[in-house]
């Protein structure tokens, strides 16, 4: 067994979310492999584009979906820009899933607070969809999403729909140039932490996005009385192997690809926010 070697997946669809964000819908060419594939929201796959390279991308589809695996990607580097040109019928390589996902079992029966920034929403949207499809198993759902520009908000229709659900609160903020069509807050989403309604004694927070954004959200949540073991963060670093061997994603004693990418705050708080780690 060679854990570095990808498997062939077919591109079922390449969905344009914004001019720079797209979702790749994939399926293993090998049917048995597709049927056997299981993942937890928050885990990631390594996607390989022929002749270009391999990158880690989190999985956004529902784990109950047996037929496709979705990845939402921003065109930012060499590989993601080249992948944006993929069409249905093309083939790429995939290996995974890797890492520790979101603590969804631990969240059962609790209020769930999701704080995301930028495209951080992609890994967390898988949790939103997961909770909404199993709504009765969880307490209140608080969705907090910050973007830079109003145009960066993808799945806007869904946020508007989620807002109408019972026991669900949607808090959106755009920090720069909010347009007339932006009915929500102007500024940082972390300025609105006090508006989130939840029971701190029976809640869990999951966050994903730029570290500065997460850092700004942590204090208000802890001050509200949330236990630091109920505060979970998805971390990101350079990754090459995804199996804890190449050393790039080390964060203190943790390999983010292996012990993470999702961590309880208590496990990483000594390094979190420290420049250069």
């Amino acid at each position: 067994m060679n854990p570095y070697e990808p498997q062939v997946v077919d591109v079922i669809q390449n969905i344009e979310e914004t001019p720079t964000i797209y979702t790749l819908r994939l399926r293993f060419r090998d049917k048995a492999r597709q049927q056997a594939y299981r993942f937890a929201p928050g885990q990631f796959n390594m996607l390989y584009l022929y002749g270009v390279g391999e990158i880690p991308i989190s999985i956004v589809s529902d784990p109950a979906d047996e037929f496709v695996i979705d990845h939402t990607i921003r065109s930012v580097g060499r590989v993601t820009k080249a992948m944006s040109k993929l069409k249905a019928g093309d083939q790429i390589g995939l290996r995974g899933p890797f890492g520790r996902g979101w603590p969804l079992q631990h969240a059962l029966g609790k209020d769930v607070i999701l704080v995301t920034g930028g495209l951080g929403c992609a890994p967390v949207v898988s949790v939103i969809r997961y909770v909404i499809r199993r709504r009765d198993l969880f307490g209140r759902l608080v969705i907090m999403q910050g973007v830079k520009h109003a145009d960066d908000l993808i799945w806007r229709d869904q946020y508007e729909q989620w807002e109408t659900l019972h026991d669900t609160q949607v808090i959106l903020a755009a920090s720069e140039q909010p347009s007339a069509q932006w009915p929500w807050h102007s500024g940082h989403v972390t300025d609105l932490m006090h508006t989130a309604v939840f029971n701190p004694n029976n809640a869990i927070a999951m966050m994903c996005g730029p570290e500065a954004m997460m850092n700004a959200a942590i204090d208000p949540l802890l001050r509200e009385g949330l236990n630091e073991h109920d505060l979970w963060l998805s971390m990101e670093r350079n990754m090459h192997c995804a199996i804890g061997l190449c050393g790039h994603c080390q964060y203190g004693a943790n390999f983010i690809c292996k012990q993470g990418p999702v961590f309880p705050f208590a496990e990483i708080k000594t390094l979190f926010g420290e420049k250069g780690f």
Binding site: Y4, Y50, V52, G53, E54, H240, C241, C246, G247
Partner: peptide, 24 residues
């Protein structure tokens, strides 16, 4: 020290692509 990087390398005809592991 065990750190290593992966690089993608094509042959001259660009028909065989090798994924290499190099010390980093």
């Amino acid at each position: 020290c065990f750190c290593h990087q992966q690089q993608t390398e094509a042959d001259l005809s660009n028909t065989l692509i090798s994924q290499l592991r190099l010390w980093d």
